[in-house]
Amino acid sequence: MTAIYDRGVVRVNFTKNMQRHVDCPPEDVSGATLRLALDDYFRIHPAVRSYVLDDQGAVRRHVAVFVDGDHVSDPSSLSDPLGDDAEIHVMQALSGG
């Protein structure tokens, strides 16, 4: 185990629908909350931020974020705590049937 694993590694994955617009490969990042983990990802891939978050830093209305398979409970401040080896999935909300 490396040091980073001791802090807990968070895996961030994106829907293929977003890959059409912006390069957003899966990445291992760190962070005790969803906000911190996403910020760590955006530090590596800054262009991805505005595809996921709106001008006020909230998750876009038609983007769905899951932590370990569950919808996030707080899409505005992204305060959801992350456990060790958490997995984040950024998906596209269903719309238009």
């Binding site: 617009h21 709106d54 876009r60 038609h62 596209q92 909300a93 719309s95």
Partner: peptide
């Protein structure tokens, strides 16, 4: 206006 992913 990408719909889901905002204005670019």
């Amino acid at each position: 206006g990408t719909g889901h992913f905002g204005v670019h």
